[in-house]
């Protein structure tokens, strides 16, 4: 869209400073940024932005329920379910909610319409507002629930499509929850650290962004410890290094206490603004 921009902040693994960057970027931009914490398994951004929660939307997944008085135990549902979540044993149908993807194939196929669907709660979306006029949205997966992606999907739906600037804090890794978080964004910032671990994980994340065709840039955190592998890799791959943040004791302490980077080092505000302008230029003009 013309006047909106969505930037995702991601990293191959946690603990590289992804949340540190995402929250400080949000605080450095003009008021009214929309912030989505998509790391629904281990959301942390609220610790730094400290939002006032205003509402909570339960999020569910539709799962099938079988009316035994109608069911003829024909086994069609069992046959079509790719996830072995619905099983017919002799004349009984068993549904394993934790395996179900809520795809609706069983409901669709049932020849006698014995299946209805109920919404099973798997998490919540929380909305609130934080400093600097930030509209804060967080997804939270219930403990014991396996599927994070439906919550991220819902979180994206709950977000305002007209917000000028949207930032998404993505979960670590390269599988579905990350894809869901990166998908539909205009730009991705990958946060890494200059160690072989950081490099290994960065390569994976770069792969994700390239598969999804999302332009990207790299921020190196704790840039002064470790080795030169990241620089060499970025040079080879033609990836812009957007910012380097050295290991500073005060920043680490602030992080431990939930204090955003730019509160510890206010001079970073300008640097984040510049970084944003640069990204915006690239997004708008390619």
């Amino acid at each position: 869209m013309e006047n909106t921009v969505t930037i995702t902040i991601a990293s191959g693994k946690g603990g590289t400073g992804k949340t540190l960057v995402a929250t400080s970027l949000a605080l450095s931009l003009p008021e009214g940024v929309q912030f989505l914490d998509c790391d629904v398994e281990a959301p942390n951004s609220h610790i730094f932005l400290n939002p006032q929660w205003e509402m909570e939307v339960p999020t569910g997944l539709v799962v099938p329920r079988v009316d035994e008085s109608v069911c003829t135990a024909c086994g069609e549902c069992n046959r079509v379910c790719e996830f072995k979540a619905i099983v017919v044993i002799v004349d009984k149908v068993l549904v394993f909610d934790e395996l179900c993807h809520g795809c609706g194939a069983c409901t669709y196929i049932c020849p006698v319409d014995a299946i209805t669907e109920i919404e099973k709660p798997i998490g919540v979306i929380r909305k609130g507002s934080a400093r600097n006029g930030i509209h804060f949205l967080q997804g939270l997966l219930n403990i014991g629930e396996p599927m994070a992606t439906p919550i991220i999907r819902r979180l994206k739906k709950e977000a305002s499509p007209v917000a000028k600037i949207t930032l998404r804090d993505a979960p670590p890794g390269t599988s579905c929850p990350v894809i869901e978080s990166v998908e539909g964004s205009d730009y991705t910032i990958l946060v890494t650290e200059p160690t072989p671990f950081g490099l290994n994980d960065l390569k994976l994340s770069v792969g994700v962004c390239r598969e999804l065709n999302v332009p990207l840039g790299v921020i190196i955190n704790r840039a002064d410890v470790g080795d030169a592998g990241i620089h060499a890799y970025c040079r080879e791959e033609g990836l812009p290094i957007l910012m380097e943040i050295p290991l500073i004791r005060e920043v680490a302490e602030g992080y431990a206490n939930g204090v955003p980077l730019i509160d510890v080092l206010p001079q970073y505000r300008d640097r984040f603004q510049e970084l944003f302008d640069k990204i915006l230029k690239e997004v708008r003009h390619g």
Binding site: K13, G14, T19, E41, A42, N44, I47, L141, I143, G144, E145, P146, M147, A148, P171, P172, G173, S175, P177, Y255, A256, N257, G258
Partner: peptide, 26 residues
């Protein structure tokens, strides 16, 4: 990482779990 599907799969039926953490609020 996390608490979702792969984590659940890595915990199912194990004898014990060792959690390593760090002294930050997150």
């Amino acid at each position: 990482p996390g608490v979702g599907c792969p984590v659940t799969a890595s915990l199912a039926g194990v004898d014990k779990v060792l959690v390593i953490t760090e002294p930050t609020l997150s």
